[in-house]
Amino acid sequence: MEEILEIGGEKIDSRLFIGTGKYPSDKLIPEIIEASGAQVITVALRRVDFNAITQNVMQFIPKNIKLLPNTSGARNYEEAVRIARLAKAAGCGNRIKIEVISDNKYLLPDGHQTVKATEILAKEGFIVMPYINPDLIIAKQLVSAGAASVMPLGAPIGTNMGLKTKEMIKILIEEIPLPIIVDAGIGKPSDACEAMELGADACLVNTAIAASDNPVLMAKSFSEAISAGRKAYLAGFAAQQKAAKASSPLTGFLYE
């Protein structure tokens, strides 16, 4: 079936986006990319560590991959804007995942600061993909601010708790005319599959793959789950019934 995700005017073949954090070794990344089929991959920006500059995560990311730098570390919109501009200057293109976090226990995003950063960066020509709590009002403000997609969390970052915010994500899917990418909290392929069945446009998975005992196999599993969930959403679900409804005709028995 021909149906391709488009974000900020760019066509994206895979609905599984992956992160590059927490792998036992960055050397695994090329295999993970292949197994997951992912085309969009997130990275973060940090000060150079002059004691460990021999390796860089970028050397493990193939050239045809679309990089999605995040603004992790930003505590307010000014810092997010600064990191986005630096990521662009570093050669990452003009995609940016806005992440503004001031709460260190749950790493929950600051919606208001995120809207401000989105407004500034969208005007500068960035493809802005903000990470938010699934809050309809913030999401609507992001649409007005020029976001290219909305990335609601399923549960706090790295918790693997699954789609705890399912009902709120459903509202965003219904009401927001931008791609909805479920980000954070997805712990199992079935969580990702469920998000896709609801009508999410894509999922971003990092910890659930990176911290698995077999990240490559888990990447493959996520890829299949997302593909299955998307197909189910497109197919449409049969109606639920309270009482049983036989699958075969209730006539023509041998004893009749």
């Binding site: 960055d26 990275v43 973060a44 920006l45 940090r46 995560v57 970028m58 992790s72 630096l86």
Partner: peptide
């Protein structure tokens, strides 16, 4: 000077 580079992230 601030010199930054890419690291793994989600």
């Amino acid at each position: 000077l601030e010199i930054l580079t890419f690291v793994g992230g989600g």
